[in-house]
Simulated scan of single mutants.
Amino acid sequence: MRVAIVLGEVAGGVLAHVRSVAAGLIDAGHTVDVAGPPGVLDVLGVEGVDRVPVRIGDRPDPRTDAATVRTLRTLRVADVVHAHGVRAGALAVLAHTGRPVVTTLHNAAPTTSRVNAALFSLLLRVAARGSAVVLTVSPDLDAPARRAGARDVRRAVIAAPESAVPPIAHDGFRAICVGRLTAQKRIDLLVDAAGLVEDVTWSVVGDGPDRNVLQARIDATDAPVELLGRRGDVPQLLATADVAVSTAAWEGQPVWLQEAVRAGLPVVSFDVGGIRETIGAAGVFVDFPQVEGIAREVRRLAGDPAYLTSRRGQVHAVAATLPTRRDEIDALIGLYASLTTPSMS
């Protein structure tokens, strides 16, 4: 089978998922084309894919988008086209390749402005109505996809790496968060929570446009938070932590939290998006944006060894149920086969 993957300016968990899918499909003997911005293709890092450079930015650009659609029409050689994100999905549909299109929705509608929300709604309508199947990473994306005209909405399977580094001895109690330093991740709320808890060190792994603002907030409040920047040793950092904390305003199926659960870390998170569905009993969930609740749970874990041990037992039970890379690839291959195999009547 030949699969064409289309993506825009992605990073973080979406990029990790596409990397995992492309590599898994190639390992399973399939041919994979990846159409995306040159910079994304450069960091994708999957051997054996056929690169198709296109420009899919964050905002519509009539001239650029028309050129992208023309290039995407060459994907008619594929058996199925799988777009990641609403912009990529809309452009893949407009390319009219004659091949079934699958669109995975990785994000909720933006709330930054009415203009952005309206653009997202328009793109979602195009992608949803033209896709054979829409996959969502979170249950709160199902209804918007159906309202936009999606005929078949299913949950995406997003897997994290299965290998975890055994716990590494360390001093003190450590909380960790992994994510880009952007508005959606609300690291400012993590900084606020950290200031309410004594004798806990908080580390944030990742980089992004909000770094300077966050560092200024940390300095001004003297919060015990370290911004570690982008790191290539996340499994080792998880192994030296005691709890994973997410203060994001929205997440789908965050890969890093699945990695944390595999590493044996209890999770404290706001109850947003698909996090509860993804990690279940491995997490304690707090209403957004109540930082006092985040601080209270971290304080309890740090100060009550028996409670921490109990929570770790729940985490290990959940870790055994998380989807594997094989589950992720098998689900997609089965979906693609159902769309490309003529039905028997």
Score class of each variant (00 low, 15 high):
V3I: 09
A4F: 01
G8P: 11
G13T: 01
L15E: 01
R19V: 10
S20Q: 01
A22H: 02
G24D: 00
I26A: 04
D27A: 14
A28D: 06
G29C: 10
V34P: 14
G36V: 05
G36I: 05
P37E: 04
V40I: 10
V40W: 04
L44S: 09
L44V: 14
L44I: 05
E47Q: 13
D50C: 14
R51T: 02
R51Y: 10
V54L: 12
V54M: 11
R59G: 10
D65E: 06
A66M: 09
A66G: 10
A67L: 13
T71I: 08
R76I: 03
V77R: 14
H82N: 11
A90C: 11
V93N: 07
L94N: 02
T97F: 11
G98K: 02
G98W: 03
V101W: 14
T104M: 06
H106F: 12
N107V: 15
T111P: 14
R114D: 11
N116I: 09
N116Q: 13
R125M: 15
R129N: 06
R129Y: 08
V134E: 05
V137A: 09
S138P: 11
S138C: 07
P139E: 00
D142T: 06
P144D: 04
P144Q: 02
R146T: 03
R151T: 15
D152V: 00
V153T: 04
R155K: 07
V157N: 00
V157L: 00
A159S: 04
A159Y: 00
P161V: 00
S163V: 11
A164I: 03
I168Y: 12
H170I: 09
G172C: 11
F173N: 04
F173A: 07
R174M: 14
R174V: 12
R174T: 14
C177Q: 08
V178C: 07
A183R: 13
Q184T: 06
I187A: 12
V191P: 12
D192F: 13
V200A: 08
S203L: 13
V204E: 05
V205F: 07
D207A: 13
L214P: 08
P224W: 14
L227D: 02
R230E: 11
D233C: 10
D233N: 11
P235N: 01
P235R: 02
T240F: 04
A241L: 06
A241K: 02
D242K: 00
V245M: 03
A248M: 05
G252T: 01
Q253T: 08
P254S: 07
W256N: 14
E259I: 13
R262K: 07
L265I: 04
P266N: 01
V272Q: 03
V272K: 01
G273M: 10
I275R: 00
A281N: 06
G283I: 04
F285G: 05
Q290R: 11
V291A: 14
I294V: 15
D304S: 13
Y307M: 12
L308N: 13
S310H: 06
R312M: 04
Q314Y: 14
Q314I: 08
Q314A: 08
H316P: 05
A317H: 09
A319K: 15
R326W: 02
D327T: 00
E328W: 00
I329R: 05
A331P: 03
L335S: 02
A337L: 12
L339C: 04
T341D: 10
T341V: 06
M344Q: 15
M344T: 08
S345Y: 12
